Computed example of a mutant assay.
Amino acid sequence: MEEIAWVSEACTLPTAEQPTRVAAFDEFFAEAVREMRQPEHTRLELVVDAAYAARARELAALETACCSFFAFEFGGSGAELIMSIEVPAGRAEVLAGLRRNLARILAERERP
């Protein structure tokens, strides 16, 4: 199933709940993320509308609970929040899948 391609086999979230979690991230990405950067192959930086700061932190906490290899950090100020997502080198393929999914969502949003 393409939409959950970034979900790791190490995820402890029950399989039946994974599509719902992916959908929550997809909705967040579509509504809140303004820009994506990848300064390292194991780290993404998302520029998020600060109005979605609470949702960003909530999703990060939920994801860390079931996929403990994800590390989330938050920074920035004013109207933008920087949400950093980092994984160990051995999990870079999971981050790459998440990046591809996010890139697709951002590209779809740009279409007229």
Rank of each mutant, 00 (worst) to 15 (best):
P19G: 04
P14H: 13
R55H: 14
F28Y: 06
E45F: 08
E35G: 01
T42V: 07
A54Q: 15
P14V: 07
A50Y: 12
E45I: 06
M36E: 01
T20D: 13
E17G: 05
V22P: 09
E17R: 12
F28C: 01
Y52I: 05
D49C: 06
Q38D: 05
F28K: 03
L44W: 03
D49Y: 06
R43C: 05
A23Y: 07
A30I: 06
V47F: 05
E27Q: 02
A23F: 10
R34E: 10
T20P: 12
L46M: 00
P39Y: 06
T42C: 06
T15W: 14
A54L: 03
R21P: 04
A16V: 13
R21G: 07
Y52P: 03
A32Y: 10
L46R: 03
R21S: 15
Q18K: 11
P39V: 03
T15E: 11
P19L: 03
E35Y: 00
E27C: 00
V33D: 11
D49E: 04
R37I: 03
A24R: 11
A16M: 08
E40M: 14
T20V: 13
A54H: 11
E17A: 13
F25P: 01
P39L: 03
M36H: 03
L46Y: 01
E40Y: 15
E27S: 02
T42G: 15
R43T: 01
Q18M: 06
R55Y: 08
A23P: 06
T20E: 14
F28P: 00
L44F: 01
T42N: 10
F29R: 05
A53M: 11
P14T: 08
L44G: 02
A24P: 07
Y52F: 14
T42P: 05
F28T: 00
A54K: 12
A16L: 09
D26K: 11
V48H: 08
R34P: 10
E17V: 03
E45V: 08
A54T: 14
T42M: 02
L44S: 00
A23L: 13
L46N: 00
